[in-house]
């Protein structure tokens, strides 16, 4: 039994920290997202070329940023899990994966919604959209692999190896897709030139980006907490099955 307590020692510390942090981050996320979205959708000026269509940006850009950011976080957690065998890193990496997939899906859907009025079609094989789509496939593979094992720990380590391999390949895939896109010159690419964007649009965008980051932290903490509880239940059930409970 001391062995079991030892393995729970740091998760217990995590629970304490998470419980202390969670309310604050939740409020922060709600305020940032609320203010940013209302500002972006209602008070910020329409674009002189795109009109009100540009307002998709306040969701699309942060979601696309989070898609990449989540994968980077997931890959770092996976690498630290493989190197230091820290169980919490495994939990966090697997908790991050579906969140990242959701942000990626939001980026793809809002991209398509933005594309319809801008390009006249729901989908064009634009370099950014295509890279995000491939990223979505990488998330799907990661989730499918971690769920494909009967042994939870095995699934975690297999998924961690995949996340690291994916992280090495992701920049190569991204640049290949950009290269492929310039070669074909198909659709006219809409450019979001960051520095030239007007302040009246930049501020709400900044707020929603920060809000999405906080939302990610909230979701991640909640998912890790619920996963820890699920494991506790499993341990208790196993103890009952072997008659020691």
């Amino acid at each position: 039994m001391p062995n079991f307590l030892h393995s729970l020692a740091s998760p217990a510390r995590f629970q304490r920290i998470a419980n202390a942090v969670l309310p604050w981050v939740s409020v922060l996320a709600a305020v940032l997202l609320g203010v940013g979205i209302v500002w972006g959708l209602v008070f910020s000026p329409p674009d002189y070329q795109q009109g009100d269509t540009v307002r998709v940006m306040y969701i699309h850009v942060p979601a696309a940023w989070m898609a990449t950011f989540c994968y980077a976080v997931m890959a770092l957690l996976s690498a630290s899990f493989l190197i230091w065998k820290h169980q919490l890193a495994d939990l966090a990496a697997r908790a991050a994966s579906p969140i990242g997939a959701c942000f990626t899906a939001i980026a793809l859907i809002t991209g398509a919604l933005w594309g319809k009025p801008t390009w006249g079609t729901w989908w064009v094989w634009d370099a950014r959209l295509t890279s995000v789509l491939v990223l979505f496939f990488l998330y799907l593979g990661h989730m499918a692999l971690s769920a494909a094992f009967d042994d939870r720990e095995r699934g975690g380590r297999a998924a961690a190896i995949l996340a690291c391999v994916g992280a090495i390949n992701l920049p190569i895939i991204k640049y290949s897709v950009e290269w492929w896109n310039t070669l074909h010159q198909g659709a006219s690419v809409f450019r979001m030139d960051g520095p030239t964007i007007d302040n009246s649009m930049l501020w709400p965008l900044l707020l929603t980006v920060l809000g999405f980051n906080m939302l990610f932290v909230v979701l991640l903490l909640v998912r890790i907490k619920s996963e820890l509880l699920a494991r506790r239940i499993e341990v208790l059930q196993r103890a009952r099955a072997s008659g020691r409970g």
Binding site: L140, G141, L145, D150, R154, W179
Partner: peptide, 27 residues
């Protein structure tokens, strides 16, 4: 190698490796 201990093999391999093949295809 990753799907060796997994419950489903074949289709999963495709989902895992095909995105990684994209740069080779492009060039």
């Amino acid at each position: 190698a990753l799907v060796l201990g997994a419950r489903r093999g074949g289709a999963l391999v495709g989902l895992l490796v095909l995105p990684l093949f994209l740069p080779v295809l492009i060039f």
